[in-house]
Amino acid sequence: MSWQIAALQQLINGLAVGSVYALIALGYTMVYGIIKLINFAHGDIYMLGAYFGFYAITMLKLPLLPAMLVSMVAAAIVGVLLERIAYRPLRSSPRISVLITAIGASLLFQSTAQLVFGASFRPFPQAMPFRRIQLGPVFITNRQLLIFGVAVLLMVILHVLVTYTKFGKAMRAVARDKEAALLMGINVDRIISATFALGSALAATAGILVGMYYNRIDPYMGMMPGLKAFVAAVLGGIGIVPGAVVGGLLMGVAENLVVTLGSSTLRDAVAFAVLIVVLLFRPNGLLGKKGMEKV
């Protein structure tokens, strides 16, 4: 029976990692939904968020939750500036140019972080004591509970924001048709900025949560989770907010189950295998509707 218990344990671990993917994937999906751009630098904003949290705790001596807020605000500012400086001038350019710019932005964040914060990893301050809670044959740690709690809370807030507020309505209008939204008197630029701010803040939280979970942060930590979160967004159906959550959780679980089954080096290949299969057989994602191309 032991492999079943191991699998159950990995399921819990997978859901924790998956929640983080979901938080990052939300940013990808919102930005893609609104300006059809794969914001390659999004994973690096998650990395910056972890560092902002690190400094808020160590230098400003803030407790965890205020540190999280500081990091969210700082990351939101970075996200907005990124859109302003790098993406906005290219809004009417071919998508490939924008994608290359996004790759450039990603590299820039990484190398700047390496220069400013140092290339080697740092242990993340443990703002809460480690505890593990036994649940029959498996256990769950208090850090995992924190991840679940924060992730669920943020997703509920985001859901309310997008579904019930005027801002959310405007955002959906811009995603549907930018020109028409403009004609309805919606300030499209401001909505796009706000979307970047929102996505970046979520990513920053994810960064801090992961920093605490793995107890280490480094300038390149954003690359892989960023790509995987993107895959999660595609898996759920890019541009669809609940899709990002579903995709993120599934990705986290799938990865951890593969670890149970065999080699842990294969873990990183899972995401890309999933991506290619999804793109080929269900390119609009699990929750996506079939679209049509206009001739």
Binding site: L37, I38, R95, I96, L99, L227, F230, V231, V234, T265, L266, D268, A269, A271, F272, A273, L275, I276, L279, L280, P283
Partner: peptide
């Protein structure tokens, strides 16, 4: 053959994924 059914940025990510799969193999 399969990947080139995708366009633009989707193709980009799929090729990147393929490259990483080769590396992991």
């Amino acid at each position: 053959l399969p990947a080139l059914r995708l366009r633009g940025d989707y193709l980009a990510i799929a090729t990147l994924g393929f490259g990483e799969i080769i590396r992991v193999i």
